[in-house]
Nucleic acid binder design. Structure first.
Lengths: 230, 230
DNA sequence: ACATGTGTACTTGTTAGACAATCGATGAGT
DNA sequence: ACTCATCGATTGTCTAACAAGTACACATGT
């Protein structure tokens, strides 16, 4: 079904294609991914397919227990809140830091220009440049570990996005405007305000996502609750 | 050489034992870990050994390029700064959050009691309860992803610690006192002060670690620089 | 009819052995 | 002494196979 790919590593190539198929929605939530199934469809050996699957399990895109077949992760509203809270933790500190150095990453500027350019296109096309915008901010601090953590969160966000077909999910113009404001605040060295705006920005996106997934809205938009009982 | 272990999964068991051997210093930095070598020493098949090694590579404890043998990660001062900065990002937000809810995790209280109890023992014994203290704080927010990220950072910190034999590295009494102060600030709901104290706490530990590794000190202790050029 | 036990098919965990591709180093030639 | 080629070692991947565990359906008993 899926064509063969040639890259640095076979297991990496298979994993990449599976990733795309998951993000595209071709593989729906809770869809079972048998090792032999993957092996035959990509014409690779079962150990290779196994390694690919385990890679995606490590990334959180698939879940599986011992001796059970891997399934596409089915993320609920709680997971979405977890993911967005983690994003906020990392990114708000990053904004403070960038603002302190008055560093405006060119990649983020370009990404937001791209968002503005497709303002008339399909609403779901905004996801890629939006993620690129945020990732550019993170990468600008040059911390390998933080970048890795964030990209793992981005992968989960994209997974969530692919489960939602509501076209009214995203207000492209608003997103673009808030991104612009964030960049301006960074340039002006106003880190605290940038961090606060980011919290609202992410909180809004989170609640829209939760709503589109059928979950009920959280208590407040900009400061999510949910502290574990000790 | 290493005895066999029986657990849920063989590759997990092998990975765990390798982890311990790395943390204990038995496997020094840049030590090569051949797949066949691991396979024969644990009496497992090579694919199993391979999987264990790849697991540790994913955790950052081992490094390896394509077609090259895995080696124990050799973390330099830059890595230490990256790790501690990432810790600060996560943990400072966690402290603000815990303080807002005035939630003092019992696990952290117990961990700090343990530190106080062994105030007369070997200085390196403080590492385990110290990590437990910080991990308890993180886990208290109940965010699975943040906990996972943090534990990955803790693993790297422990790797660094095992490379350092300087016994004057840690001032147990000071650590214990600062932990106590952190808990009090949380209980009092003074999140900002807690976050600031944490920055100093981690910054001090970081610079001691860097110094013990032979690196030169960073510019300032509580607000590490190192912004990537654009 | 319902609950319970059994059994079979499917899937995963692990192993063995093998071959090609690649990396590192040693040795030969200039 | 320096460059290049050959060789050994190591990894990537495959085929084949067996053991072990899970899940579902079937049959049985109450």
């Amino acid at each position: 079904m899926a064509g063969r790919i040639a890259a640095v590593s076979i297991v990496e190539a298979v994993a990449s294609d599976l990733r795309l198929r998951i993000f595209s929605g071709e593989l729906p939530s809770a869809h079972a991914l048998t090792e032999t199934e993957v092996a035959t469809s990509y014409e690779v050996a079962r150990p290779t397919a196994k390694a690919s699957i385990e890679k995606l399990v490590a990334e959180g895109l698939l879940v599986r227990g011992v001796h059970k077949t891997a399934r596409v992760a089915d993320l609920g509203p709680e997971s979405v809140r977890d993911i967005y809270l983690a994003r906020a933790y990392l990114e708000s500190e990053v904004l403070r830091r960038l603002a302190a150095a008055r560093t405006v990453p060119t990649g983020a500027v370009q990404a937001n220009r791209d968002i503005a350019a497709l303002a008339t296109g399909a609403p779901l096309d905004v996801v890629e440049p939006d993620m690129r915008f945020h990732t550019s901010l993170i990468d600008a601090v040059g911390n390998e570990r933080i970048s890795r953590m964030y990209s793992s969160l981005v992968a989960e966000v994209r997974l969530c996005m692919s489960r939602v077909q509501s076209l009214h999910l995203l207000d492209t113009a608003l997103i673009q405007a808030e991104h612009q404001k964030l960049l301006e605040l960074i340039e002006a060295g106003r880190g605290e305000e940038a961090a606060r705006l980011l919290d609202q920005h992410l909180g809004r996106a989170r609640e829209r996502l939760v709503a589109a997934m059928g979950g009920e809205a959280g208590p407040e938009a900009d400061l999510p609750s949910g502290l574990a009982n000790q």
